[in-house]
Design a protein around this nucleic acid. Structure first.
Length: 723
DNA sequence: ACCAGGACAATTTTT
DNA sequence: TTGTCCTGGT
């Protein structure tokens, strides 16, 4: 029916999806590893080369920059034409582009700035302080979270019905203040990009007509991750004459806590009629056992759009289960297994350690360092979120747009130049009273300041003016380089003797490289510098498709979504950790945990090991733990229990200990110590035994010393004297 | 302006 | 336990 190259290497269902008629909407339920990105890119290829659509007729939306970049790259190869300004990108970047094209229609100036979450935090904090809202009762993080939640739902402050909930009431008040602040200061946060884009289309019929007509085809990746405002955005762009093509997998919905609505994937069948649903169920990634075990696990969830994945590849190895005594032993086991794989010729980068929470990474790091194995950890502060980078960007932003108040506040006294809080307060209030920006206010009030503060501020003003003047004709990277020097940031870190200064200097150098690598699109609504500034906020990773080196990959299961590895260790499968304590009592949260576990398992291509520890040190305390219920939900026939050579008790024995505290005491009483007993330590002096763990030589005692505080000591080393 | 020490909290994370 | 943030002292 269709000629290669469109059908090239696609299975029947994939082909069907790709060549679907142009008259229907489509929902492609694409299971893990079923080649969904392939289908998406080939669909576009088909529309362009067979149906003679121009690339500009197509809108393709993803969630992450990574996915967007990958799609762009694949399309460039497939279409063999530059995709230039094609509308491919994240929801946020596309919304941003819309707003940059039509800022006035939503009461923004053409130079409006985007707030990242740090900036947002600071603003919320200041507003709360100014309005006397007690941040100990209403933690700023929670209020910020609340605000974003509302915005993701498309809810405005005036539409919140707080009822008797005091937290909601106060948060709604802050929300209102915050929205007004943003409006007055020409600021848009991440959620705001979407909210405003939606409003733009809703309130401007001619624009809506234009874009509905322009985008003949709207393709959405990872549809299960859409939140309400994103759904509305897609829905409003859709009319009788254009069509949506959505790809998603309800079993991989793991961002519900962030506002993603799995229901959207079900709603789509009613809201976008006529629609054709196609399931992609052939998996090209994992071996039979891995797949069957994953299928069995996810089958425990209710309300699924049932799919059952299958594979043509053989059963492969069984899934290994390892029960470690402690988290340290778990790490040692995993690392020694990685060494084995390495010795058998596997590349380190083919091995991944996946965990539920970032705090778990440390033990693995320590173990890897000990054995001298390269590793890479994902997570933590990203490049453009680092303080030194944000400072540098602050100067660049201020030089580009003198009324960028966020940037002004960031750099006005960093590196410190004697401009104190009181001076800044004066600048702020002048700005508010005169409806002008902080920079103009500074110039205006300088005469009225005490000599010292005045001089300091004058110095800053001259610095910025000189910066603007001297960099205006430079290329972007020269501009960045020169800004680093003129601002004094480089000197500041050169004089800084603390151990972190070196890496900060390296990061700043890296910023120059990032500027060099930045590719600006010529017909953009922005100039090159503005484009670079926007990129820094909208894609803070700062990664330019660099290949991962020869190193073991450590990351949370969340960040592993969309990736695959030949060898996977999914660790910490314990009750209260995975599923997490906060989720286990609520059915819909527990289901999401199960999906998360499913996502983790289905990352594995050939080898999958699940591990858990019977005792774990967390938040400075040791806890006994039960194996995760998810392990019990996988049929035994797929599992291979690894014998633990160092285990001094079996699972059942320890469960006895865990389930009845009395037993702990009775076990303890067989040793020479008992809880409540007073002992003497050579160094710490007198103390009382509060608790204990383990037995024999490895027994550890928790002792509250009169002077030295509470400590955990190993009984065989501690040389305790019973008093 | 800067640092030490205390209080406090600690899933998941994109944009 | 670790990191972060705030405070109070110098």
């Amino acid at each position: 029916m269709i000629s290669p190259p469109i059908a090239d290497g696609l299975n029947e269902k994939q082909q069907q999806s790709v060549v679907l008629s142009e008259d229907v909407n489509a929902l492609i339920l694409a299971g893990a590893g079923s080649g969904k990105t392939r289908v998406l890119t080939h669909r576009i290829h088909y529309l362009v080369s067979e149906k003679n659509h121009h690339v500009d007729d197509i809108l393709a939306v993803t969630f992450t920059n990574k996915a967007a970049n990958e799609m762009k790259e694949r399309l460039t190869n497939l279409l063999r034409q530059p995709i230039g300004r094609m509308w491919v990108g994240t929801f946020h970047s596309l919304a941003h582009r819309l707003l940059r094209t039509h800022p006035l229609e939503v009461k923004l100036s053409p130079t409006f700035q985007i707030l990242d979450s740090q900036d947002q935090f600071r603003i919320v904090k200041r507003l709360m302080k100014e309005n006397g809202i007690d941040e100990t009762k209403f933690p700023i993080r929670k209020v910020q979270w609340f605000i974003n939640q509302q915005k993701d739902e498309g809810i405005l402050p005036q539409n919140i019905d707080a009822g008797y909930n005091f937290f909601v009431k106060q948060s709604a008040k802050v929300f209102d203040l915050y929205e007004k602040h943003c409006q007055a200061n020409d600021l848009v946060d991440f959620a705001g990009l979407l909210v405003k884009s939606y409003e733009l289309l809703k309130n401007n019929q001619n624009l809506l007509d234009y874009y509905q007509k322009k985008f003949c085809h709207i393709l959405v990746d990872e549809f299960q991750d859409t939140n309400r405002i994103q759904y509305q955005f897609i829905k409003i762009l859709h009319n009788q004459n254009n069509h949506v093509f959505c790809v998603g997998d309800d079993d991989q919905s793991i961002y519900g806590w962030r506002g993603a609505r799995v229901e959207n994937i079900q709603k789509i069948e009613n809201d976008f009629k006529p629609i054709i649903v196609i399931k992609l169920e052939q998996n090209y990634r994992s071996t039979g056992n891995i797949l069957s075990a994953s299928n069995a696990l996810i089958a425990k969830n209710q309300n699924r759009l049932e799919k059952s994945l299958w594979t043509e590849s053989g059963d492969g190895d069984l899934i290994n289960i390892f029960n470690a005594r402690t988290e340290t032993q778990e790490a040692q086991y995993v690392v020694s297994e990685i060494e084995n794989h390495f010795n058998q010729g596997k590349n380190l980068s083919e091995c991944a350690i996946l965990y539920r929470s970032n705090a778990q990474s440390r033990v693995f790091e320590e173990s890897l360092i000990k054995r001298n194995i390269n590793y890479r950890i994902y997570g933590g502060l990203r490049f453009f979120e680092r303080a030194e980078i944000k400072d540098a960007m602050g100067y660049i932003r201020l030089a580009e747009n003198i009324s960028d108040n966020i940037a002004f506040e960031r750099v006005v006294n960093f590196p410190t130049r004697g401009i104190g809080i009181s001076t800044i307060e004066k600048i702020r209030s002048h700005a508010v009273e005169n409806h002008t920006d902080l920079f103009q206010s500074s110039i205006a009030i300088i005469e009225s300041l005490p000599a010292r503060a005045g001089n300091a501020l004058q110095g800053f003003i001259h610095l910025i003016e000189a910066l603007i003047d001297s960099t205006k004709n430079l290329t972007l990277s020269e501009k960045v380089d020169s800004t680093l020097l003129q601002s004094g940031l480089m000197t500041h870190y050169a004089n800084d003797k603390t151990d972190k200064a070196g890496s900060k200097r390296e990061n700043l150098d890296e910023l120059v490289t990032a500027a060099k690598q930045y590719v600006h699109e010529n017909e953009s609504e922005m100039n090159e510098t503005q484009g670079f500034i926007a990129l820094a906020t909208l894609d803070s990773s700062g990664e330019s498709n660099q290949s991962s080196q020869e190193s073991v990959q450590l990351m949370t299961v969340h960040s592993a979504k969309g990736l695959e590895f030949p060898v996977v260790f999914l660790v910490g499968l314990e009750e209260d950790l995975f599923p997490s304590r906060q989720s286990k009592d609520e059915p819909h949260l527990l289901d999401e945990e199960r999906r998360l576990c499913y996502v983790g398992m289905t990352r594995a291509m050939q080898s999958l090991t699940l591990s858990y520890a019977s005792r774990r040190f967390l938040h400075g305390q040791s806890f006994y733990s039960l194996n995760s219920r998810f392990l019990d939900e996988i049929p035994k026939s797929f599992l291979n229990y690894i014998k633990n050579p160092n285990s001094d008790y079996t699972t059942t024995a320890y469960e006895d200990v865990k389930s009845s505290p009395q037993k702990m005491v009775s076990t303890l009483s067989s040793s020479i110590y008992s809880i409540g007993q007073v002992v003497n330590h050579a160094k710490f002096g007198h103390g009382t035994i509060l608790n204990y763990e383990g037995s024999g030589d490895s027994m550890r005692l928790q002792i509250k010393f009169q002077k030295a505080g509470t400590k955990w000591l190993i009984s065989s080393y501690a040389k305790l004297e019973i008093v």
